[in-house]
């Protein structure tokens, strides 16, 4: 018993050990890595990915997948920026409805949540595979973004909006605060609430969960809605950082998010994993991205290295289970 318990603990620590080894290696090769500035850099850069990955973790825990997060991020960001800058024109009444900063932020989050809710609705109502439904949403939301922006970036959003992505609060970058709040809420949700237990139960065995009286449809709808909301928060952060809503923002972010979840030890077959693991996974990806650039590694090799790390994580996960 004691032996297995120790082994379990070691397996849980595996990503942490990997991160430590990586940091050690990079800091030996580059004296610029272990500096306070670079630390803030990495944290600011991974804030968006962590935010999306938290939503993705909840989805994957229910044995689902959400491929639409990158597109939802772009659409929510564009809506936020567009409402803030232009408002809504109502030609028939000849008025323009302006939006305050808070109004635009709330609208962006509502849009993200609504698209996520629609994912959940289509998946539960029509028993459609999540992979296909969210793939369709990936395409549609990108199309909505193009329609809304007409293919051009929305620039010049002002300093107040810029604070979300570039500001500092109590000596810490503001996006890091936002992400910390998102992470803590998600940790609380998964560990301390009935909803959290239901999410794990559905991923473990959906039929058993259904038979034990859990409203599995409702739980799934909530999970996909939350994933849409975290993507929208990510979208606001990206848009604010760039002071520009780019129509092609968030391309292939879903893959980075899935990679973070998997490296963090959450099983793609659902029911097993944690938010903290995902945060660790995102940090590993962020450190890797940063380290490869610090060491001026050729762009061709960077892609090979990143792919290899993901592969290694999955292989380690598999061998642990056997």
């Amino acid at each position: 018993m004691i032996a297995t318990a120790t082994k379990d603990r070691l397996i849980k620590l595996q990503p942490l050990i990997a991160l430590f080894v990586m940091c050690l290696a990079i800091s030996i090769l580059s004296d610029k890595f272990l500096t306070v500035n670079n630390g803030w850099n990495i944290l600011r850069q991974i804030s968006v990915n962590i935010c999306i990955s938290v939503g993705m973790t909840l989805v994957i825990l229910t044995r689902g997948i959400d491929l639409s997060v990158g597109s939802i991020l772009a659409f929510a960001g564009a809506v936020g920026a567009g409402l803030l800058k232009f408002g809504i024109d109502v030609p028939s009444e000849n008025v323009n409805i302006g939006f305050t900063l808070l109004g635009a932020i709330i609208a962006a989050i509502v849009v993200g949540g609504a698209l996520g809710w629609f994912n959940g609705f289509a998946i539960t109502r029509f028993k459609a595979p999540a992979f296909v439904v969210t793939l369709a949403m990936l395409t549609m939301a990108r199309g909505f973004t193009m329609l809304y922006t007409e293919g051009f970036p929305i620039n010049g959003l002002g300093d107040h909006f810029g604070f979300i992505g570039t500001g500092w609060f109590l000596g810490v970058p503001f996006p890091v605060w936002i992400t910390a709040v998102v992470v803590l809420l998600a940790v609380f949700l998964t560990n301390k609430t009935p909803l959290g237990r239901y999410i794990y139960a559905i991923g473990g065995n959906e039929n058993a969960a259904l038979l034990s009286g859990i409203n599995t449809k409702r739980v799934k709808m909530i999970v996909y809605t939350l994933s849409g909301i975290t993507a929208a928060i990510g979208g606001l952060m990206v848009t604010s950082r760039l002071d520009s809503a780019q129509p092609n923002a968030g391309l292939s972010y879903e893959l980075d998010a899935i990679a973070a979840v998997v490296i963090g030890g959450t099983s793609l077959s659902g029911g097993k994993g944690s938010i903290w693991g995902t945060v660790l996974g995102a940090v590993i990806i962020g450190v890797l991205n940063n380290g490869l650039v610090l060491l001026n590694v050729s762009p061709f090799w960077q892609q090979v290295v990143k792919g290899a790390v993901i592969l290694l994580a999955v292989i380690m996960d598999k061998t642990n289970k056997e």
Binding site: R241, N289, V293, L294
Partner: peptide, 24 residues
């Protein structure tokens, strides 16, 4: 030339890559 990196014609990627380059 102290660093040559790709940023995929993308504003966000350029921002992140440049931040890291400035560190080294």
């Amino acid at each position: 030339m102290v660093a040559q990196q790709n940023a995929d014609f993308d504003r966000n990627k350029a921002l992140e890559v440049m931040e890291s380059i400035i560190q080294s």
